[in-house]
Amino acid sequence: MQRPSILKFLKNKFSAYVIACAFLISAVFAGISVGTIHVPFRDIAFLLSHHMFGTSIANVDPMFDNIVWQIRFPRVLLAGLVGASLAVAGAAFQGLLRNPLADPYTLGVSSGASAGAVLVLFLHFQLPWIADFTLPVVSIAAALATIGLVIMFARAIERSLKVETIILTGIIVSSFLGALISLMIALTGEELRQIIGWLLGSVSMRGWGYIQLIVPFFLVGTLLLFLHAAELNAMSFGEEMAQHLGVNVRRKKMLILLSGAILTGAAVAVSGTIGFVGLVVPHFIRIIWGPDHRHLLPLSMLTGAGFLILTDLLSRTVISPTELPIGVITSIIGAPVFGVILLRKQRKGRRTA
């Protein structure tokens, strides 16, 4: 009797948001608290309240103020924004293409964003008028150009733009861009360490400036996808069904792909290449709480944010004081988890067959 009641609680959508929010808040406090110098949760709450609402911090050690507000909180916030961006983009791509293997990496979007960012680092150039925004703007532009190239190539192969064709085209384009990145690395001199470190993925030593870079793109991308949750639900049943329901499939497909590219490009621009977040997190949420994108997208956002915060915490503490690249940790965790998910799904399919 107890087990069904627990399952019923977990399946409830209100409970889902409570669990996801509690997970994110716990991850934020753990990410700020744990380190060379331990900061108590109570002091973290007082300091965050002070900087956000102007409350008193008379009983808090002044040393903690700089540690929390200038070092750890920006890092935790950036990790959360990157994780949320990748998870939401992955959820949208999986729903749009009706394939659990679809994510920003299999579609080539991340490779495009990476190629654009590496080009900026390689050539050391800044665009006029936008200066510090050069890296994310070029990265996002490259991501958009990549998704455009994938769609053009897929349409040339098959005008109906079948899911399998788009994914295979994305893999081809991703492989080509990976070769270009390798070429730039081979031609690099003193910038080699910087580019390699960036490609492995990290949110270390990023301050409030990086948060200012990603926030506008994060808000635009997530808002557009949230507004198209109903269309994603319709298209997840097939394009013909969506058309019968009154959805302008071609226009909405392009808009969803562009929104995902914006999120991916901005995330890659500030953190480098971080894999498996957009693949595993939405799939995990879909298994537990269902495929309704009205809930899948926000739950993926919350869970993806908390997941990457904890992953970053692990990357900087597992062999402290040395930091591991966060992209390495997500791959080590994500690959076997996704393998288990696929294995369970295959076994379930055999039972029902």
Rank of each mutant, 00 (worst) to 15 (best):
A91L: 09
I195W: 04
F276K: 02
F307G: 07
G290Q: 09
L213R: 13
P62Q: 10
G148A: 13
Q243I: 04
L313K: 00
W129N: 12
I25D: 08
F218M: 13
L48R: 10
A143P: 02
S320L: 00
G339V: 05
I32R: 00
L78Y: 01
D132H: 14
A89M: 06
K8G: 12
R250H: 11
L123H: 02
S204V: 13
F9L: 13
G116E: 05
F217T: 10
H295V: 09
S26T: 14
N59H: 14
R98G: 07
N66Y: 13
A145H: 03
I6M: 14
L255K: 08
L299E: 06
I262Q: 08
I140W: 04
P282E: 14
S202F: 00
E164T: 13
G349L: 14
D61C: 04
T134D: 09
A154M: 03
G116Y: 02
G278W: 01
W198D: 10
L144M: 13
S236D: 08
L7H: 05
E323K: 00
V280M: 11
V60Q: 11
D103P: 02
S110A: 15
I196G: 04
A79S: 05
H38Y: 14
G112W: 00
S204G: 11
A84C: 10
Q243P: 00
R42W: 08
F133L: 14
I274W: 01
L227R: 12
A92Y: 01
T264P: 00
F73T: 04
L310M: 04
R350V: 15
F176G: 06
V68H: 03
T188K: 04
Y210S: 11
A22W: 08
L78V: 02
N12C: 06
F93V: 07
F23P: 00
L168I: 11
G306F: 09
Y105T: 04
I37L: 12
P321K: 03
P282S: 12
A353M: 15
G209N: 15
S300W: 03
R98V: 07
Q194G: 13
L119G: 10
S114M: 05
L135F: 04
D43S: 07
P128K: 12
F64V: 06
V88N: 02
G148E: 09
L96S: 02
D132C: 10
L343S: 09
G148K: 09
N66W: 10
S56I: 15
L223C: 12
